[in-house]
Lab assay of single mutants.
Amino acid sequence: EPSQADLDALLSAVRDNRLSIEQAVTLLTPSSGGGSGGGSMDAKEILTRFKDGGLDRAAAQALLAGRTPA
């Protein structure tokens, strides 16, 4: 399960175009075949909204942490 520091680094990389959204989703869902963790939004949607400015960093982190299976 990614830590808050991992999520923060991942969000920074996506925002700075050092990591594509697809690459980030793969890192967030290493063994689930890329499927959502059952959250209301999947990781790709969360990351896309964050990059487009629709979500701030704290909200994106909380959503990603919340949808990651324990």
Rank of each mutant, 00 (worst) to 15 (best):
E1I: 13
E1P: 09
P2K: 12
S3A: 10
Q4I: 15
A5F: 15
A5S: 09
D6S: 13
D6F: 15
D6N: 09
L7C: 04
D8Y: 12
D8W: 15
D8G: 08
A9P: 03
A9V: 07
A9W: 15
L10I: 10
L10F: 04
L10G: 01
L10D: 00
L11P: 00
L11H: 00
S12L: 10
S12H: 05
A13T: 01
A13I: 02
V14M: 02
V14I: 10
V14A: 01
V14Y: 03
R15Y: 09
R15T: 04
D16K: 05
D16T: 08
N17S: 09
N17T: 03
R18S: 08
R18P: 00
R18M: 09
L19C: 05
L19T: 03
S20G: 04
I21C: 02
I21N: 01
E22T: 05
Q23H: 07
Q23P: 01
Q23N: 07
A24K: 00
A24P: 00
V25M: 07
V25Q: 03
L27H: 04
L27V: 04
L27W: 07
L27K: 05
L28S: 02
L28R: 01
T29H: 13
T29S: 13
T29N: 11
T29A: 09
P30F: 14
P30V: 14
P30R: 15
S31D: 13
S31R: 10
S31E: 13
G35M: 12
G35W: 03
S36I: 10
G37T: 12
G38P: 12
G38N: 15
G38H: 12
G38Y: 07
G38Q: 11
G39M: 14
G39K: 08
G39E: 11
S40M: 13
M41C: 07
M41I: 13
M41S: 07
M41V: 09
D42P: 05
D42A: 08
D42G: 07
D42C: 15
A43Y: 15
A43L: 15
A43E: 05
K44Y: 13
K44D: 03
K44R: 12
K44S: 08
K44E: 06
E45D: 14
E45Y: 05
E45N: 06
E45R: 05
I46C: 02
I46S: 01
L47E: 00
L47V: 02
L47W: 01
T48F: 04
T48V: 06
R49S: 05
R49G: 03
F50I: 01
K51C: 03
K51R: 11
D52L: 13
D52K: 10
G53A: 03
G53W: 03
G54H: 13
G54W: 08
L55G: 01
L55R: 01
D56V: 03
D56W: 02
D56Y: 02
D56G: 05
R57Y: 15
R57V: 06
A58D: 09
A58I: 07
A58C: 09
A59V: 06
A59D: 08
A60K: 00
Q61V: 09
Q61C: 11
Q61P: 00
Q61S: 14
A62T: 09
A62W: 04
A62Q: 11
A62P: 01
A62C: 14
A62R: 13
A62L: 09
L64M: 03
L64D: 00
A65V: 08
A65R: 14
A65P: 02
A65F: 09
G66T: 09
G66P: 05
R67K: 08
T68E: 11
T68R: 10
T68D: 10
T68Y: 11
P69Q: 10
P69H: 13
P69C: 10
P69T: 07
P69S: 10
P69K: 08
A70I: 10
A70K: 06
